[in-house]
Write a protein that binds this DNA or RNA. Sequence first.
DNA 1: CTGAAAGCGCTTACAG
DNA 2: CTGAAAGCGCTTACAG
Lengths: 343, 343
Amino acid sequence: MTADRPTAARVAAHAGVSVASVSRVLNGLSASEEMLLRVNEAVAKLGYRPNAMARSLKVRRTQQLALAVADVGNPVYVEMMRAIEVETKARGYRLLVSSTGGDLSDTHALLDSLAQGFADGLVLSPVRVDDALVDALRRLDLPIVVVGTVPKSLAVDNVRANSSGGVRLALEHLHARGRRRIAFVNGPLDTVPGSARRRAFERTARALGLDAEPALRVEAQDFTLAAGRVAAEAMLDAVVPDAVLGGNDLLAIATMQVVAERGLRIPEDVSVVGMDDTELAGVTTPGLTSVDLGSRERGRLAARLLLDRLGDPSREVQRVTVQPQLRVRRSSGAGESDTEAES
Amino acid sequence: MTADRPTAARVAAHAGVSVASVSRVLNGLSASEEMLLRVNEAVAKLGYRPNAMARSLKVRRTQQLALAVADVGNPVYVEMMRAIEVETKARGYRLLVSSTGGDLSDTHALLDSLAQGFADGLVLSPVRVDDALVDALRRLDLPIVVVGTVPKSLAVDNVRANSSGGVRLALEHLHARGRRRIAFVNGPLDTVPGSARRRAFERTARALGLDAEPALRVEAQDFTLAAGRVAAEAMLDAVVPDAVLGGNDLLAIATMQVVAERGLRIPEDVSVVGMDDTELAGVTTPGLTSVDLGSRERGRLAARLLLDRLGDPSREVQRVTVQPQLRVRRSSGAGESDTEAES
DNA sequence: CTGAAAGCGCTTACAG
DNA sequence: CTGAAAGCGCTTACAG
């Protein structure tokens, strides 16, 4: 914590060349054999590393990208993060991860500080979106990829899941197994996924002729295990369904717990299906049938879109949608094979 | 993605003052009412935000901290991350999160790039430590806090868990419930926690007179669910214990799964205890008894130590140890109350 | 209290 | 191929 770091000037002095030449060698520009040798030797001897801030100031690139997700504790975001990190690291970017807690003010604070220019781009996966956020995104003079749903009027690269299709896959699966009294433990309706999944649920339930009793639809305060428990308890106090769809895996897993505690068997008495197909779905007992909404693939695509735009800022805005896949496990009555894909 | 950002010079011109004054107002230094008004108005009108890189270059602080953990997918690190984020955000720092995958080369790459000065400090929680890493840490001219165990010779602030004590708590608990044939599904022995927990297990097992059959000790390839399954299968192919201690919660949960699949009852036939007391321990069926090694507390303390050192670089090196607590749940035969603390 | 000037550590036209 | 010089956008002594 003492010795000040060597600068390009010191390396230059040591090698008996100009700082310009030091910079050129380090950036792989043309230089004579002699120059290469002298600079590299001085660099090695002094343990020189170029100052990232000085470089950023000059070249107007930070080599940093920001990633903002609602909840770093949710495995679905962990999987997305990993996929993004793989892509961006391979291209030499560092990743700043923010957990915005599903709170709009956190997201605004992040966007506000992004305006200070410490990152070259942003991948944002917001669960709540309001006009102020859309405005702030529009004002932000930075390449952005939104993972999720945004108003058409906002021209940003966009990767989305097809959660309506996912809900449909889940309900058709349960319907095919004879379930008609299907509950929905959803997340908050004021979130983008919460409201989309709710609409899809109602539409599909009607089409399939499922039981429409209002008590079968509950809304957890959050897409978390703890909130799921509370919502599932309330629902089961009022009604006994023959199947439950969780708004995500965490809600489904919390529901499984409550169902089991009440002495109901899964899947015999109550089938349970989740959404996101996180790693957790494979380790519950019984294994949780879940709709894979392609979080890794969405992460990978989001990173690609961002990197592409960084390379070509004028490129046309792209929107891609990842299609869902149902992973059937024992919680909805899979047979021998522990996991099989339907889709 | 077009309009270039306003600079302090532009704000100064707009307000009819010097750039020095703009800087002073923005940094809250003394200024006349008149000056405050004019600058703030210009700032607001132009939507000016100071350039973070330029500021960093000048003041030699980046307002960024790096956090490197072995596996962002492990809830124990998520909890630690959250605790660290709370502390550091409150002090105006951004957090760069790296997942080093338990791989030494990733950690070295990170340290190498940290030498470029893009962060003011580092919290590192390595699962593997070798001489080269210790050397690299010594060379790195940056405040560092290590969460985990480091050689005494390395003078860095240090927060550690007492995992030996944790293993002892777990084994004494199982012993008190009459278990003698206790298996250990541990993580890799070439990791710091793996080897420490192994030693503690052997020592305590001997002291308590537990069954010493070698087949009861297995080593998973990694501290993950997937690796835990493989290790647990191998162990149960060879021997049937009356209890299992997992090297962490993920290994314990994977083991619970395999145990259940083989038709053994938990806790009647086999009690299971994990380590870390992650959120997952509360949502398995049955709930998993686990040793809380204080991950949130360790994160909080690590952040504090780092912030303190940032404030006073010459402060003496500190080492703190967080004590473990046993959380008893149904997997080891808790009664009515779903969770009770022993310690 | 305020401004002019130097300088943080780089990169990059511009000459030679 | 190489060097001298300008400049990225700030902050901070230094004068006044």
